[in-house]
Nucleic acid binder design. Structure first.
Lengths: 102, 102
DNA sequence: TATAAGGTTTGATAAAAATCGAACGTTTAG
DNA sequence: CTAAACGTTCGATTTTTATCAAACCTTATA
């Protein structure tokens, strides 16, 4: 059974990944846009107005998915992003509210 | 008068700086330690158990101060860090609570 | 099924951050 | 006042992250 130090440290590691993922202007914009869309609609990856190559765009969405901020529906020639709102609220309570105003 | 887009974007810029500052294991540990110290004591920069050179340590504390997470009292041969708890709670409500558990 | 329209992966390059040693500054102790 | 102790700044290096073009993959459509 892990002691408190271990528990805290692993929890902090997860938080660190989230913070790293958010610490980039494009990725932060994506997440904030998704948060501010109350309808929780699936969004095309191209619908965020990002002015980078598709390779770079793909890189950022993969990163956001890998840390659990979004789920990512891959339909081959069609890529959709969806905020993991409920899961995030449970795992990192307050995170969404913190970013909401941005 | 700035429109919403401008307002949001500058608010997001501030948030981005905070997120970047927190997106490093040492800096996150420093802030979480300060948050979990309910007494809001001033802490020696050496008291966080960071295993880096003093130049690097100084670099991280400067960064945390520059984004407003801590205030930094420089007494020449003595450096103290203090969480800007009230200001942070006002400017980024929920941030401290979010990090508290880590 | 062939082709077009995305998205992803790979490999290379560019940009940003972290790190350290050395030189310097400031305070305190002797 | 001098030396010791500690923090900061500077310059150079290393490590990490971001970026893109090209090749490839997946789906939809003619």
């Amino acid at each position: 059974m892990p002691n408190d130090e271990t528990k805290n440290s692993s929890k902090r590691d997860g938080m660190l990944l989230i913070l790293k993922a958010l610490a980039h202007p494009m990725r932060l914009k994506i997440i904030v846009d998704l948060i501010n869309d109350e309808d929780d609609a699936e969004r095309h990856c191209t619908s965020f107005g990002l002015t980078v190559s598709k390779a770079t765009r793909s890189h950022h969405f993969k990163l956001l998915k890998d840390v659990g901020l979004i789920s990512h529906i891959d339909r081959g020639n069609h890529s959709l992003a969806l905020l993991r709102r409920v899961a995030l609220e449970e795992e990192y309570p307050g995170l969404i509210h913190l970013l909401k105003g941005c």
